[in-house]
Structure formats: structure tokens, C-alpha cells
Amino acid sequence: MLKILSMKKNQEAAAKKKPKTSAAQIRVQKDLTELDLPSTMETHFPDAADLLNFTLTIRPDEGMYKGGSFKFSFAINTNYPHDPPKVKCTQTIYHPNVDLEGNVCLNILREDWKPVLNLNSVMVGLQYLFLEPNADDPLNKEAAEDLRSRRDQFLQNVKNSMRGGSLKGRQYDNVLA
């Protein structure tokens, strides 16, 4: 049997033994304690002992969604960061990239997720959706169509929906902070 143990590299290497804290757990701790969020974003943990489930509130201070308070749930599984966090908007909002079930179209949450990305990148990406809603990747097609071809109407719809109004018979949640 190979005598790895007599290899000279070993002594130094073996001293670097690690604890049983899982890689996912360490990584989440690192991501959360090093979050660098602007004052427009805030996390909330329903259970402070559970770092894997929390909400993020985004309050844009500019752009057409200014004045709103938008809530997202984050669920991280034990295969993080191989798997991206699962993120959903918990309110019914009028936004081209968020559907009425709260699904979010943000590339780094799905097809472009990489383990080198972190929770900070996801949160910054979400905030960006409120500053620059994107009509090219629609999840709410009507909203995207309005944004593309009837911008004034779109702005009006955003304002109306944020107050809890209804559009085309669909009631939106009041998100005014």
C-alpha cells in the first residue's frame, strides 16, 4: 500500500484538518457576514438560528419603483454554492421580469449561476431589476409589452399597482413603504 504518510508534504498538510461544519454552512456564514448592502436593502431572518431561510426587502431610492418596498424570500439548500439560492418575490407585483407567482427572471439565479457568485451578487442583481426593468426577458408579458411600446402607460401602471390597485382585473399588493 502506498505510503502517503511518509511523504514529506504530509506533515504540513495533515495539520490543516478541518472541522465538521459543512462547506455550505461555512460559505453561507461567510456570504452573510460579508454582505455589503446599500441602505436600500435589508435582510430579515424569521429564525435567527436558521441562516438558510430569510427575506430581503428592497426599497429603491430612484427609478420608477421608488417608494415601494419589495420582499423576496431566499431558501438556500445544503448543496450551496453548487446550487443557487431559490429566490421568490412574496408579493404580487407588476414588473416585466417577475410573474404573478413571484418567479423572478434573473440570469444568475438559473442559467448563469456559478459557485463563485455569492448572495451579495444575487441581491445586487435583484435591486438592478427595479432600477432597469428589462422588456427583453419578460415573465409578465403584458408588463413587458407596456414597457416597450407604451412607456407612459407602463409608468402609470407601476404607480397604480404599487398602491394596491388593479390592472385588467388583477389585484396587486400595496407595496408602498
Partner: peptide, 29 residues
């Protein structure tokens, strides 16, 4: 992998091919 001596599985985690995920907006529309 010689644990603690050579690179381990976790060291190479970001080299993995991810399962193909399609953009959610493509799926939707």
C-alpha cells in the same frame, strides 16, 4: 484525491459542468 495532500473534490467545485438550465423567461414565453 489524497485527502489534505492533493486538491479535493470541493477544490474543483466551480469546474463542474452545471446541469443545463434554461432562462426562466424563455420557458415562460
Amino acid at each position: 484525491i489524497l485527502p489534505t495532500v492533493t486538491s479535493c473534490y470541493e477544490c474543483s467545485l466551480d469546474m463542474l459542468n452545471k446541469p443545463t438550465a434554461f432562462p426562466i423567461c424563455t420557458i415562460a414565453n
